[in-house]
Amino acid sequence: MKKDEMMQFKSMVIFNDQISPGYCKIRLTAPREIVQSRPGQFVMVRVYDGIDPLLRRPFGIYDLGVFEPEYPNMPKQHYLEILYKIVGRGTGILQSLHHNDYLDILGPLGNGFTMGNEDDEKILVGGGFGLAPLYFLAKRLVSVSNVKVFIGGRKKEDILCVTEFERLGIDTYVATDDGTLGSMGLVTEVLEKYLSDGGKRRTIFACGPGPMLKSTAAIAELHGISCQVSLESNMACGVGACLGCVTKGSSHTEEKPDYRCVCKDGPVFDSRQILWG
């Protein structure tokens, strides 16, 4: 990757809102070069200047944009948005930030999705804040391809972004474990049913909890559909230096290890490159 594509920058919070119980969306100022980010790439965010929490947190890019400056003659301000679930100290602090607070950001990092053949129907499968990179991807895909999105979660509150996808004119299929939204059961079951017509040429893009990705990969394999998955992992460096974020590649054996860095070799992988545990 070229130097100018990676940046470390101070960023100001524009807004930071709850979008569903336990989930938030934050809009952050960014330098102009952020427009080069590709769907599937992520940023490492330092939420606090001190030593606790110490490490940055990775977040997939949800959206990019520009807003008009407050005063004429000022340059246009670029921004990026991320979605996050409040799970620990880092995201707890993130939630407490307000307009005009500052953060430190590293990114964009990693490899994004490969858009694939325009004529293929694009199937997006996701859950939780895994929807973030899929929304960014959908925005790019929708002008050239036919896009469908399958969203799964435990309960209604875990289903994010439905209106945002619908606003793009994309058909959404929702499933929840408890049936509080969409059909009851797993979203991968809904996907199976949808794919059973067998007909069209398709590409699958998935991001979400491990089990959802695993069964999506299996379904893709079964139907002979190419599938890209965006993986999540604990990360320390985000640039391929610490080897703390690895996942097993398909040719992995004890004798000939095949570990891939989620941060640098991914986070997007062809599902056949991964050894699904």
């Binding site: 929490p53 490490l55 990360m235 703390g244 974020c245 690895v246 996942t247």
Partner: peptide, 10 residues
């Protein structure tokens, strides 16, 4: 090969 995951924690 290194160790299985998870390998790091803050």
């Amino acid at each position: 090969a290194g160790n299985p995951m998870p390998r790091i924690v803050e």
